[in-house]
């Protein structure tokens, strides 16, 4: 079985993000970047399935700047076989990425697409769902377990009330949640090998996809600073404040 994994390059989760001076977004220049943690889990899952003999080939795909090649190399050092960078300097939105994925799926015919449930930069939680919709494939989001068997897969989803176990027909799109696995540390020999694995760079145009953003960001601001607290006399005063000042009850 061939698996396609979508990965995204984001600001390293350990870095404190800063809003750009002009409020157009967050600062990414000269900031440490990393593979999105949920995408890393997605790659790990594919690699484990390959090690278990279920998967024969892992293709990783990303959309973005030339520097995204590093993200693909990381995924290949983890164990992915080859990578495709769809290169653009447009700040792509979920629908554009989903369309790119659709075009690549059409060429590559994977049986399973694994993506992160969301990216930690903008928390959209949309791309996997959109890919499934565009393909007309089944989808299982927020999964903590996936076991392909023949033409279907058994998946466990993390839902509000607990865990939901489903059987989905393949091909399908699944998105990884935190508890799906714990990604491995990349080994040094695999970093060296990853350098020699095939990495293809193509432009969205070549796939016939228009990645122009459809949503406009008006302004990005830091969350308001928390003011200092006040001491209240009793519960009655608390209830009163919650009702009339905070207007939450």
């Amino acid at each position: 079985m061939k698996v396609l994994v979508g990965v995204k390059r984001v600001v390293d989760p350990n870095v404190k993000v800063r809003v750009k001076a002009d409020g157009s977004g967050v600062e990414t220049a000269n900031i440490k970047m990393a593979i999105n943690p949920f995408c890393e889990i997605a790659v790990e899952q594919a690699v484990r399935m390959k090690e278990a003999g279920i998967v024969t080939e892992i293709l990783v795909v990303t959309v973005g700047l030339p520097q995204c090649q590093e993200t693909l190399r990381t995924a290949m050092a983890m164990g992915a076989d080859r990578g495709i960078l769809v290169e653009t300097d447009v700040d792509v939105q979920p629908l554009a990425v989903a369309k790119v994925m659709k075009a690549i799926i059409a060429k590559e015919n994977p049986q399973l697409v694994i993506m992160g449930k969301q990216a930690v930069d903008n928390d959209c939680n949309q791309t996997g769902q959109m890919v499934a919709a565009l393909m007309g494939w089944p989808q299982a989001t927020h999964i903590s377990k996936v076991e392909p068997a023949g033409d279907h897969a058994e998946v466990t989803r993390e839902v509000d009330g607990g865990l939901e176990t489903l059987t989905i027909k393949l091909p399908a799109v699944v998105t990884a949640d935190l508890r799906l696995n714990e990604p491995r540390y990349v080994t040094l020999p695999n970093i060296m090998k990853a350098k020699k694995k095939p990495l293809e760079v193509i432009k969205p145009d070549a796939l016939g996809v228009d990645v122009t953003p459809r949503l406009t960001t008006l302004k990005v601001v830091e969350p308001a600073k928390r003011g200092s607290g006040v001491k209240l006399a009793d519960v009655a005063e608390l209830v009163n404040k919650l009702k009339n000042e905070a207007k939450v009850i």
Binding site: R73, T74, A77, Y185, V186, L188, K195
Partner: peptide
């Protein structure tokens, strides 16, 4: 000849992670 800047960056990046986390 294999020791290019991007290889060095990848090696240092992963080593840094291992040092910090393990």
């Amino acid at each position: 000849s294999e020791v290019t800047a991007d290889l060095v960056e990848a090696v240092l990046g992963e080593a840094g992670k291992f040092a910090a986390e393990v």
